[in-house]
Write a protein that binds this DNA or RNA. Structure first.
Lengths: 166, 166
DNA sequence: CCCCATTGGTTGCGCGTGCAAGTAATCTCG
DNA sequence: CGAGATTACTTGCACGCGCAACCAATGGGG
């Protein structure tokens, strides 16, 4: 008759969080695999290139780019190093402030991301096939609320954008 | 009047996925920080220890444990190495199959997780303060559906459980 | 005008991870 | 019963990441 008292080893919240983690992991993994299988850029590259594509002149200061991704400044430095090595991005100097350097899309980079986006979106459509428009909207609403709990800022800036980031 | 045609650089799905990623990152980060600030085990340790706490005899085969976490077998080997080094877990041999080894909670490990769970749940309650029970349930439903898209298996096994995994 | 605090970016370092290969035990089936 | 396939776990290796330290360039006040 002892049984150390079943503490609250279980709480609805723990389940919710567990589901969030699993859904996230599954989605990212699936998207990443698909991109690779079809010969597109990696998930991380996708995220970076898409953000550049959507920016004025297809370029962004390193710092701003870092702020928009899940990477730190140092992580971004090296991510851009890799993209530069594969020719999808170039670093451009800033005339008015010699400290800043822009990461800019090369023609190859623009090509790559323009090819990857439709493929990725198509894949997402498959994955969300079971969802009605209203359900997807409701999911958006709930996730946005949760997101705003941590990052009351975020909101602005043409909305997130992420994709299948690492 | 050219403007290379604004492809579908934006799709509702991309936004949804972006929100999922941000919500996930924010939640995990917040939970992790809080645990550390209050002197509890790390997020990864939390996840592993909780699963052991919920298992018969407070132990699990390495393989099964790996399957329940986001780690691979090799990653788990080393995670358990660390937990063993800090005295929260022990490896136990299996009599009937000398290949398998169990990861088992030590008394210290049980203590640690029993202290961490209520703290973590309390924190989650704060974070979800803006949600009504019905909304949380709806979020569960939608996330579960999404999860099942990737892992049609999952479902069973006393339900996820995750927490603030790395 | 110059010194100092601040900002932008990169680099050294250590760590945690996955993959692939390796070892050991078990199972299968001829 | 015994060789080959399979399963459980561990290890070598290479890589990507964040943190903290670092250098360079700005921008305010004295």
């Amino acid at each position: 008759m002892a049984e150390p008292a079943a503490v609250d080893e279980t709480s609805p919240l723990l389940t919710t969080v567990g589901l969030l983690v699993e859904a996230h992991a599954g989605l990212v993994t699936a998207a990443e695999q698909r991109l690779q299988a079809e010969g597109h850029v990696s998930g991380q590259a996708f995220e970076i290139l898409l953000r550049l594509l959507r920016s004025p002149e297809h370029r962004l200061r390193m710092t701003d780019l870092a702020a928009q991704t899940t990477l730190t400044a140092s992580g971004l430095t090296r991510a851009v190093d890799r993209l530069e090595r594969t020719g999808l991005v170039t670093r451009e100097a800033c005339a008015s402030d010699r400290r800043v350097s822009y990461a800019a899309l090369t023609p190859d980079g623009e090509d790559a991301i323009r090819r990857a986006v439709p493929a990725h979106v198509a894949h997402l459509e498959e994955l969300f096939a079971g969802f009605g428009d209203d359900e997807r909207a409701e999911l958006d609403r709930l996730l946005r609320r949760l997101r705003d709990t941590f990052n009351p800022e975020a909101a602005r800036a043409s909305e997130p954008v992420d994709a299948p980031p690492a």
